[in-house]
Design a binder for these strands. Structure first.
Lengths: 231, 231
DNA sequence: ATCTTAATTTCGGCA
DNA sequence: TGCCGAAGTTAAGAT
């Protein structure tokens, strides 16, 4: 990884056009060919960047540019999309290179897939008599997260989110419309389950007869036969 | 901006839990207190990070950790959410500080607002006899991107996206329902215009009698009286 | 301040 | 590979 601290301007042309006026910035050149332009604030997302695969070439500085003080110009071109990044450098304050070696990668825990698995193991939290039909129950308009059967009382479609917002209610509504046309399933009720349900989403859900269920991840995990097995 | 190249492990606890095994990485500490952990590959998104406001404190290295070779431990805590990041450092290869000064910020062109302006100037692309009523036509449930009138044939509501996905169709459907109740406007047809329309969105749209229109940004821009006026 | 929507979204999973 | 949906989404604009 090459780290360059430089006074520069940057111009991007691709899906949109963008320009960065002259200022001191960090230019991060990664081993895979990608480049990131970072300022000293504004988190996480660079001001400009180019994804691999891309080629970085030093191009000749034109007379006009040289007169303005440009000492070096880099052209970065994306192989696939043809997006371009032009970096005009006025001064380099630092230029170092480090070999970082292999990245073993990030291990995650706690996302929706996990919630889904845990809730599928503990369907009684949705309804005391519920029986799991299956996770990812496939329909023509997409998979229902969890489909449950309640003996003598039809079925329950569960839509699962980490954070329950309004679009999840829309999604579940579409599923319910479809599922209730199936005489083998009807009547199908809806349950919107999430670690947190936004007031607007709750209002819309209840307005449509959809029950809201707030999940406590730690509680679900604590009741799981597998328990906490990470790391 | 402080740039540290170090052999480290990182543990995140917050909305989820995540762990980074031991490896060499770049730790970027920005002026606003935020921190980014980058590897030598993988684009633009750091492996781990913490957004401002957050506090970084050096904590004491426990005996067990010291025995494993940890020479320094940083705890980063988010002020608002309470998220935590623990960085255990085994070796520091480089540690430099640079003052970058003010960031003037990025100038953009080519996003949805621009598309809307261009299409509003070229309504014939929607319908040969269409006349612009107005952009951002306000309704009780939100603004319709573009409302057009077709002499003797009612109106057209245009929903505009850069990339046409299913939620845009839902949105337009809601608008159409509402607008068609207005006898001064009815009949109102819907047009879903985007630079790219996903198959699922197209299917749903056409199923609801909504016409899909794929826009070529460069073509729209080329036909504009203003042309390319950026920079 | 809160909420809605876009993003050069990125990222992962699955057909 | 392409499509689809989630993300510690983030970030910008509107209410």
């Amino acid at each position: 990884m090459r780290l360059v601290i430089a006074d520069c301007t940057v111009d991007y042309t691709g899906r949109l056009s963008a320009h960065l006026p002259r200022a001191n910035r960090l230019l991060m050149l990664k081993g895979d060919g990608s480049i990131l332009v970072h300022s000293d604030s504004g988190s996480y997302k660079p001001l400009n960047w180019m994804n691999p695969p891309c080629t970085i070439s030093t191009i000749e500085v034109g007379e006009a540019a040289a007169e303005l003080g440009v000492v070096e110009a880099w052209q970065v071109e994306q192989g696939k999309t043809g997006d371009k990044l032009l970096i005009s450098i006025y001064e380099i304050f630092s230029d170092v290179n480090h070999d970082l070696g292999e990245e073993p990668g990030l291990l995650k825990d706690g996302v929706e897939a996990n919630l889904q698995q845990l809730l599928a193991e503990q369907v009684h939290r949705v309804h005391p008599e519920a029986i799991l039909v299956r996770r990812e129950y496939f329909t023509a308009i997409g998979p229902v997260d969890i489909l449950l059967s309640v003996p003598g009382a039809g079925h329950i479609a569960v839509e699962l989110k980490r954070r329950g917002e309004i679009d999840g209610v829309e999604q579940l509504t579409r599923y319910l419309e479809l599922l209730n046309r199936d005489p083998l399933l009807a009547p199908v009720r809806g349950v919107y389950a999430a670690q947190e349900i936004k007031p607007q989403a709750r209002t819309l859900a209840e307005d449509r007869g959809i029950e809201c269920l707030v999940l406590d991840y730690d509680e679900l995990k604590g009741s799981s036969p597998e328990g906490n097995t990470l790391f």
